[in-house]
Write a protein that binds this DNA or RNA. Structure first.
Lengths: 217, 217
DNA sequence: ACAGAACCGTAACGTACGGTACGCGGACTC
DNA sequence: GAGTCCGCGTACCGTACGTTACGGTTCTGT
C-alpha cells in the first residue's frame, strides 16, 4: 500500500535552532504555499541559505523535514479500553471526530496537505506518504483499538475494523477536507464541529451499534 | 461560499483545433502533473507557443481552459423522479455512488484535482473553484432532486437535503479521494467499486430511510 | 492565382530561483 | 590572545522556463 520507511523517527536529534528554523519554514509554508523560496525561509528564520543546505540537503529535504517536524508535534495519548460503557464509548468517538475535524480544518494541515498533494504526482519525495502516515493512518491506528474494545464490550457489531473505521472516517470528514483543500471558504466554528461530531457518532452507532446489548442472548 | 462567476459556459466556442490542443494539454497534465511546460504542450500538440499564448493568454489561462474543457466533457443526463419505487431509488443511488467512485479514482480526475489543490493556495486562478463546481457541487445538484423525490415518495426521511447529501457523499467517498491525491496506491477494481456503491447505499438507506413506508399511517 | 491571415518551428530574452562560494563576527578552547 | 568552528549575510552562478519575436509554410477568401 505504502512503501515502507515512511515512519517518523522523532529521535532525529533536532537542535533548538533547527526546530526554530523549521517552525519558520512551517509558518512560511502556511502563508505562501508551495511557492516559498529558500531565500524567503532563510530571511524569515534569520539564517543563511548555506546553513539551510548544510542542514537539510536541498529544498525537498527542507520540505520533508518541515512536514516531519509538524507531524512529530501532534503525537497524542493512546486511549485505554478499560471499564467501557456506552456513554464513554460515545464520548470517545465524539472526541475523535471533533479532534479530526479540528485538525483537517486547521491552516497548517491544509497547507501541508496542499504541498503534499502537489508533490504526490512527481515522485521526487514522499511528502504524501508522510502526511498520510501521520494523518489518516495514525488516526486509524488510534481509533481501531477503541472500536475493538467497543465490540468486545458488546456495544459495536462489525466484522472488519478497517471497514468500520473507514465508514466512521467518511461520516466525520464527508466533503470537508477536499473542499478546504480546493480553496472553498468553509468556516467551521467550534459549535459546528461539535455538532458534526455528535451527528457522525450517532450515525456510526446507528450503523454499527450492536442490536443486542452487552448482556444480549 | 464560492464566489460567483465560476460556472462553466460551454458556449466558449472552442474550435476543433483548440479542443485538440487542450486534449493534448490534458494528457500531458495527467502524465507530468503541474510541472508541465509550455514548450512540452506545444510540442505534444504540434502547435507553436505563439499560438498557445494567443489563444489562452498565459500559462494559467491554458490551465484553466484545460480544466474547463475537461469539465465540459462530463456533462451528464438528468434523472427523472417519476414513477419512483424503492428499487429504482436504490439503483439510482448505487449508480451515483459507483459513478462518483469511478470519477474520483480516474487518472484525469486525480491529476486535475492535484493541480487545482496546488493552485488553491496562491489565489492566482480559480482552478479550485472550477473543479469544485464541476465535481462535488455538480454532483450535489444532480443528486438532490433524486433525494427529494425519494422523500416525496415516502422512502426517505430527512429535513435538510444538503445534510443528507453530504452524508451520502461521505459514505461513498470515505478516505478514497484524499488517499489517492496523496499518492496512496489504492487499486479500485470495478468489483470493489460496485461493492462499495451498494454498501454505501445500504448504509445511507439505513440512516435516512423512512421508518414508515410510502403508505404509512 | 494571389493577398493576407493563421499558424508552425525555433531561436532569443528576461527573470526567478535553487544551489554554491566567500567574507566576517562571535563563541569556545587552550 | 591566537586558532578554530559555526553560522549569518550576501554576492554569485547556472539553469529552467515563461514569454516574445521572427522567418517560413499552409490555409482561406475572392
Amino acid at each position: 500500500m505504502l512503501q515502507a520507511g515512511t515512519e517518523i523517527d522523532t529521535s532525529e536529534a533536532l537542535t533548538e535552532r533547527q526546530q526554530a528554523v523549521l517552525d519558520a519554514a512551517l509558518r512560511l509554508l502556511v502563508e505562501e504555499g508551495d511557492n516559498l523560496t529558500m531565500t524567503a525561509v532563510a530571511r524569515r528564520a534569520s539564517c543563511s541559505k548555506e546553513t539551510l543546505y548544510k542542514w537539510f540537503g536541498d529544498r525537498d529535504g527542507l520540505l520533508t523535514a518541515t512536514v516531519q517536524w509538524q507531524a512529530s508535534k501532534v503525537r497524542v495519548v493512546p486511549v485505554d479500553g478499560k471499564g467501557l460503557d456506552l456513554a464513554s464509548l460515545t464520548v470517545s468517538l465524539e472526541r475523535f471526530a471533533s479532534d479530526w475535524l479540528k485538525v483537517i480544518s486547521s491552516d497548517t494541515s491544509i497547507a501541508l496537505n496542499r504541498v503534499a498533494v502537489g508533490h504526490a504526482g512527481s515522485g521526487k519525495d514522499d511528502l504524501g506518504a508522510i502526511v498520510l502516515e501521520n494523518g489518516r493512518f495514525a488516526l486509524a491506528k488510534r481509533l481501531k483499538p477503541v472500536l475493538e474494545a467497543g465490540r468486545q464490550a458488546g456495544f459495536l457489531d462489525f466484522s472488519d475494523a478497517e471497514t468500520a473505521f473507514r465508514t466512521f472516517f467518511g461520516l466525520v470528514a464527508r466533503d470537508v477536507q477536499i473542499r478546504l483543500l480546493l480553496g472553498d471558504r468553509l468556516e467551521l466554528t467550534d459549535a459546528a464541529i461539535g455538532g458534526d461530531a455528535v451527528r457522525a457518532t450517532q450515525q456510526f452507532l446507528a450503523l454499527y451499534g450492536a442490536k443486542t446489548g452487552p448482556q444480549g442472548p
